[in-house]
């Protein structure tokens, strides 16, 4: 994973986010680390509730109570986003790091025209631009996401779901950010539109040379888009590596079961079919969070929390099977009872 810090546009180190609950803090994101080089596409996959959105919000420092960023660093070009003043943070958002939020359908202000919402974003960062220049940027921004200039005059309720998603992407890219975080940009869209949106995201990414974190729960879509895939389970990144290796030789048992549960990577299917449930995140004991569901679990797994191990080049997994093993052993019949 080490390729010289200079090219890294985003470096997330040991990020921790807790939800304060009555029974104590729920560790929804636990020591998550990953980094992105300029132009890299990282897919972050995990079942619902695994902490993907919590990570995305923390990367924008948008976590709101009961969520609380409990530790770690979010380095954008060597500046820790978590240490910026409010004013610096406002300048950084959208200009350096932009979010395409989950629920883009409801992320547009219902009483403002789309064009005004783009203009708002540009004006917050570029006081120097005159009206005409902003107008030009709006038209360009809309064209970049495949929308007609006339959309600028429309209100959100006059747009289809796919168009709203595109409008949100136009806003997010209006200042050519170096990092784009797209949180399930295709959820709630039909399959054809999903594919178009992912293509548009890819084109935007190419054009801007931005690094992208694409969050999703659909291995097919993620694999199609990404260079690197990170797999989240119960608030931890359990495996991170090049997309090809993740799919062909997954090292973490969870990744393995995830991929086995897909009828075929070309057919897009939501994650399902792993017996058992993820653990509750409050008062978690030491040990691997996947132990209760893992066919390979042994004593050490319940006593000691596994740290990330390098398992191949640019490939890490958090599992006690490594570094003793080279790859994942076959699942034996006796263990595969469920």
């Amino acid at each position: 994973m080490n390729d010289g810090d200079k090219t890294r546009v985003l470096d997330v180190r040991d990020l921790e986010v807790h939800y304060d609950t009555r029974e104590g803090p729920a560790k929804a994101v636990d020591r998550v680390s990953f980094s992105l080089r300029a132009g890299e596409r990282l897919g972050l996959i995990g079942e619902s509730g695994s902490g993907k959105t919590t990570v995305a919000m923390a990367l924008m420092r948008l976590s709101r109570p009961p969520a609380r960023i409990a530790g770690g660093e979010v380095l954008l070009a060597d500046r820790d986003l978590l240490k910026l003043t409010d004013a610096e943070l406002r300048q950084t958002r959208l200009r350096d790091i932009a979010l395409v939020p989950q629920g883009a359908m409801s992320s547009l202000n219902p009483v403002m025209r789309v064009g005004d919402q783009i203009a708002d974003a540009i004006l917050a960062h570029r006081r120097d631009l005159n009206r005409k220049a902003i107008r030009t940027r709006i038209v360009e921004g809309l064209a970049n996401v495949g929308l007609d200039p006339s959309v600028a005059r429309r209100f959100p309720h006059e747009l289809s779901g796919g168009m709203k998603q595109r409008a949100v992407m136009a806003i997010a890219t209006s200042l050519a950010p170096k990092v784009i975080i797209a949180d399930e940009p295709t959820s709630a869209l039909d399959v054809v539109v999903q594919r178009q949106i992912i293509q548009t995201l890819g084109r935007l990414q190419d054009g801007l040379g931005a690094a992208v974190v694409l969050i999703g729960h659909d291995m097919g879509l993620i694999a199609q888009f990404s260079d690197t895939v990170g797999v989240m389970y119960a608030g931890r990144v359990v495996e991170l590596g090049p997309v090809q290796q993740i799919i062909e030789t997954p090292r973490h048992p969870y990744t393995r079961l995830l991929i086995d549960s897909l009828p075929g990577i070309r057919e897009r299917k939501a994650l399902r079919g792993i017996p058992g449930l993820p653990p509750r995140l409050v008062n978690l004991p030491e040990g691997c969070r996947f132990a209760a569901r893992c066919p390979f679990a042994f004593d050490r797994c319940r006593a000691e929390t596994p740290e990330q191990q390098t398992v191949a080049s640019y490939h890490v997994a958090a599992c006690h099977l490594y570094p003793q093993h080279d790859s994942l052993p076959p699942i034996t019949a006796s263990e595969d009872t469920a």
Binding site: M57, Q91, P101, S106, D120, A124, A172
Partner: peptide, 17 residues
């Protein structure tokens, strides 16, 4: 609590706005 408020913050808008 609406998503468009969160997104407005993600745009880097001033709190007053």
């Amino acid at each position: 609590g609406e998503d468009y408020i969160t997104f407005a913050e993600a745009k880097g808008l001033a709190p007053r706005r």
